[in-house]
Each structure stands twice: as structure tokens, then as C-alpha cells.
Simulated scan of single mutants.
Amino acid sequence: MQSYPAPALALVESMAAAAAREPARAVAFQGAPGANSHRAAMEALPGCLPLPCFSFEDALDAVKDGRAGQAIIPIENSQHGRVADIHFLLPESGLSIVGEYFLPIHAALMATGDGPFTGAYSHPQALGQSRHFLRARGIVPLSYADTAGAAAYVAELGDPSMAAIAPRIAAELYGLKVIEDNVEDAHDNTTRFVVLAREPIDPARIAGPAITTFVFEVRNIPAALYKALGGFATNGVNMTKLESYQRGASFAATEFFCDIVGTPGDPAVDRALEELGFFAKHVRMLGTYPLQRERG
């Protein structure tokens, strides 16, 4: 907790103490109080006890260690794409995805004074989502670990030439003035979060449409990816996400992060996954969970 700016520490300590009393209700998130992940936890899991964590790894470890029942982690943004490192962290965490949540992202420029501003602190993802706004005003983007932490840092600095881009709630928490609302470049900007827990959901217990998420690595043979994916097409399984990423420095091991609509136990899904297994070095299931937003 020593890594948080001073204005955030009291809030972090209070929330951590509440979570420690009832860890089963605790939901770990990355960021300081007032971050978008804090908002997502409160909206997706009403009645939870949000537990701020300084990094994604800390949030995942809180669940693994039993200090929180669940974690909520951003995985992708409609404007800025994949959240850095998440595709590596999720498979290695040993946790299971048990839910998803889509959060509309609205950010505000906030500061201790009225400007003009030479720089604005925020998470790199938020800076990327507001790059046109910042460039038009000659404000230099300055990276910080999370959006609300940036707001707390600006409050701590007390420098009237510095601003933060963060959710509006952060201005209320840290005593900053909102200079301008909705500074994101795309007003339909949305972040997809996933909820993680130590135990997976039994697919048979999910009523209604579901998403299954997994990662796989294909064998180094011609047309391996084409063959690996063929089973989903021939069995009519809707693949809503396929994203590649490199593991290691050799550039020889390409892994794929995949979402499909359906659950293991469904004959079509089972046949598709069985065919995938013939052409993959490994397939690691990350979870099956209720579909929160229709794809298509």
C-alpha cells in the first residue's frame, strides 16, 4: 500500500480492512479507489467489498491467497484494444473466468486549478483513449499506474499546471476540480472486464447463452491454424474472438486467445474442441460463463 499516493492511502486502508473481515465478499481490482475497475466491481457485483490492488498481479494473487473471493480485470477496450499483459497473466494465474461485464468508459480532465495545463497523468490505456483531446490542447500525456491513482497523485502534487484523466468519481474522492467531462475520443468507448475466481462454473449449471474462453498453441506444421479452426466452422460454433500473441523471444511460439459461444458438454462444442486438440500443442481452458452481451 506504500506505493499509492498519500491521498489514496486512507481509502485503500479502510477498504482493505473491510475486505479482510469478509474476504468471501471481497472483489480485488487493479487501481486506486475511484478507478474504472472500482466502478466495474460495484456495478457488476452489487454488494461486494472492493479491494484495491496496486497491480494486476496483486489482484490475481489476492484471489489465489484467499484474501478476496473474486477479482475483476479489464481485458480489452473497444477503442484501444487489448489491455497489456492480460493474455499472459490470465493463463498463468490458475484462476477461472466466471463472468464478464461491459463498462461504458467516460473520463474527465481534473486538476487542482483552472489551467492552462502542460501535462496530464493517467493509465496508458486512458491516455490512448483520449489522445486526440490531449493533442488538440497541447497537453503532454504522462503515464501512471492507474486512472484514479493519477488523480490522487495530481492532488498530492498540488501543481496547477498538471491534470489527470480519470473517472469523475475520482475528483470527488480526492478533492479535484472537474475541468471537462467526457474527454474520451469515442463516446461509445467501452471496456470489457472479466470476473475471476478460484473455482470454475460448472457449464451444465449455466442457464442461457454462455461464452467459453481458452488459449491454445498450434503445432509448427503447414496450415495448422486453418486446420485447428476448421472444426468450429464445420460444427457451427460461433468464434467471437481470436487474437494471437507471442510467448518468449524466439517468435516461434504463437499462442491464441479465443472466445466461442457455447459450453463444453454441447456436442458441437465438444467435437470442435476435439478437432482443435489434434492440431494444437496444448489447449488451456480459462472458463465458461454467462454471456453478458450478445455478439454479432
Rank of each mutant, 00 (worst) to 15 (best):
A44E: 02
A44D: 01
L45F: 01
P46A: 08
P46I: 04
C48V: 13
L49I: 15
L49C: 11
L51R: 09
L51S: 05
P52K: 05
P52F: 02
C53G: 14
C53D: 14
F54A: 13
F54R: 10
S55A: 11
S55L: 03
S55Y: 03
F56Q: 12
F56E: 08
D58Q: 06
A59Q: 01
D61E: 12
A62I: 01
A62C: 02
A62F: 00
K64V: 13
K64Y: 03
K64M: 07
D65G: 05
A68N: 11
A68S: 10
G69S: 13
G69V: 13
Q70K: 15
A71Q: 07
A71P: 06
I73D: 00
I73W: 00
E76C: 09
N77G: 05
N77P: 06
N77S: 07
N77L: 06
S78H: 07
Q79S: 12
H80V: 14
H80M: 14
H80N: 13
G81Y: 04
R82Q: 10
R82N: 09
A84H: 11
A84I: 07
I86S: 00
I86P: 01
H87W: 09
H87E: 11
F88H: 15
F88I: 11
L89Y: 00
L90A: 03
L90I: 15
P91G: 13
E92C: 11
E92Y: 08
E92N: 11
S93N: 13
S93Q: 10
G94V: 00
G94N: 02
S96Q: 01
S96I: 00
S96G: 06
V98K: 04
V98H: 04
G99M: 06
G99W: 00
G99L: 02
E100C: 02
E100W: 00
E100F: 00
E100G: 11
E100Q: 08
E100I: 02
E100P: 04
Y101I: 04
L103F: 02
L103P: 05
P104Y: 05
I105A: 02
H106D: 08
A107K: 11
A107I: 08
A108Q: 04
L109A: 15
L109R: 04
M110W: 05
M110K: 06
A111M: 00
T112R: 10
G113T: 07
G113Q: 09
D114S: 12
D114F: 04
G115R: 02
G115H: 08
G115K: 03
G115E: 13
P116H: 08
P116Y: 05
F117H: 05
G119Q: 14
A120H: 06
A120M: 07
A120W: 04
Y121H: 15
Y121Q: 11
S122F: 12
H123K: 08
H123N: 12
P124D: 13
Q125I: 13
A126Y: 09
A126Q: 07
A126R: 07
G128R: 09
Q129M: 14
S130L: 05
R131V: 13
R131C: 14
R131L: 12
R131Y: 08
H132K: 15
L134T: 14
L134M: 12
L134S: 14
R135K: 14
R135F: 06
R135D: 15
R135V: 15
A136P: 10
